[in-house]
Amino acid sequence: MVDHGKLSRQIVLPWHQVLRIAWQSVKIRWTRVAITTLSLMLAITFFSYTLMTFDILNAIWPHASDILRHKIILAGYEPLGLSSGHRVFGASAKDIWLLMLAILVCLVGITNAQIMAVTERFREIGTMKCLGALDTFIVKIFLCESLYQGTAGSLAGAFLGIMLALISLAFKLGLKVFFFISVVSMLKNVGVSFIISVILSLLGVLYPCVMAARMEPAIALRHEI
């Protein structure tokens, strides 16, 4: 039995309730969530595609015949060095610049979408605070929602990126590329994608939801869209 009423400061929201409430919110706003997730997915797809392409090229290069090597270079991939070591292909300064830009644009897009999404829910936030929610409950629920989006975006993006890399390489270099797929490199790809995606989605929601959670309930309730 929970002893309530004695301690006049105790207000709780267990994590399993946070997860449940966040999941319900995501479910009911399916389209909006899908659009935010899509923008995450696109950035992650680009990232994952680049990473996967270089991984496969690096795996193929030491075993490639001169004809295949010629094909690779003709396809537009430039070896960074001509050593016979493992990391022959990698992101050039231009690639890194493009990746950073993609991630930055994605972050701005997500923040924008989250500001709108949080603003739409001012009244809901005000209501929750009337029912006794602490500011941290609101922040937890929003962070959890964006975590769901980040996870979905990273998984979908990594999958799509890897598939695109494989298909495009198979198209350019032949089906041989499938022999050089490494599970470790794929897992690493998914892992890094996940971390980037979650960081992006959390960064995107942090500012709007902290601002919203700190509002006086009266002001949040007065808000009309």
Binding site: R9, Q10, I11, K129, L131, G132, A133, L134, D135
Partner: peptide, 11 residues
């Protein structure tokens, strides 16, 4: 404080 205020609104 914030906790007591939340408790008041809740109870």
């Amino acid at each position: 404080d914030a906790y007591e205020l939340a408790w008041l609104r809740c109870h």
